[in-house]
Simulated assay, not measured.
Amino acid sequence: MIAFLEHTYFGNTLIRYLVFIIIIIIAAVVGKIVFYISRNVLQKKAARTKNRIDDLLVQTLEKPLVFLIFIIGLSIALKTLTFSSSADTFFGNVVEIILTIDIFWFVIVFIDALIVNYVAPLTAKTKSDLDDVLLPVVRKIVKVTITCLAIIIIFDNFGYDVTSLIAGLGIGGLAFALAAKDMLANLFGGVTIMTDKPFKLGDRIKIESYDGIVEDIGLRSTRLKTLDGFQLVVPNATIANSILENVTKEKSRKVKMNIGVEYSTSMQKMKEAKKIIEEIVIKNEDTDDKSIVSFNMFGESALNFLIIYWIKNLDNILNAQHNINMEIKRRFEKAKINIAFPSTTVYLKK
Rank of each mutant, 00 (worst) to 15 (best):
R16I: 03
F305P: 03
D131A: 12
A185I: 01
D112P: 00
A237W: 07
F67H: 10
I37E: 07
F199Y: 14
I217H: 09
K256T: 13
I108Q: 11
I282H: 02
V293P: 00
K283T: 02
D131S: 14
L244C: 09
A179Q: 06
V162Y: 13
T13R: 10
N319A: 12
A179K: 09
T100P: 02
N186T: 05
N325S: 12
F199H: 02
K269P: 08
D102H: 00
R16F: 03
E96Q: 13
F90M: 14
K45Q: 14
M194R: 07
A28H: 08
G73P: 09
V261C: 05
Y347A: 03
Y263V: 04
K329S: 07
T49M: 09
V107L: 15
I166D: 03
T60N: 09
I152W: 03
K206T: 04
A273F: 10
G168Q: 02
T265P: 08
A240D: 14
V191Y: 05
I151P: 01
D203C: 07
K251H: 15
S294C: 05
L184V: 15
L232H: 03
L227V: 14
G31I: 08
S128C: 01
E285P: 11
V144Y: 15
I277T: 01
S209H: 13
T82G: 04
T248W: 09
L184F: 15
I23Y: 06
T344N: 08
L135R: 02
I239C: 06
V261Y: 03
G170V: 14
K251A: 12
A120P: 00
F10G: 02
V41C: 08
E96R: 13
T123I: 14
M326K: 07
K271A: 14
I25Y: 06
E262P: 05
F67V: 13
F83A: 00
D55P: 03
K143W: 09
L165A: 11
K275R: 13
T163M: 06
G202E: 07
I339N: 01
D132G: 12
E278D: 05
G172V: 00
D131Y: 10
A120G: 00
Q268K: 12
N296H: 03
I317Q: 14
I308E: 12
R48M: 13
I217Y: 04
V144H: 09
I311P: 07
V162G: 03
E6K: 11
V214G: 02
G73Y: 06
I213M: 06
I276L: 11
S221G: 07
F106P: 01
A240S: 10
I115R: 05
Y36G: 04
D88F: 01
L74W: 05
D129R: 14
D131F: 14
Q268G: 03
V137P: 00
F110Y: 10
T192A: 06
G159A: 09
R39C: 02
D102R: 07
E327N: 04
D131V: 12
I308H: 01
L135T: 04
A175N: 00
A180M: 11
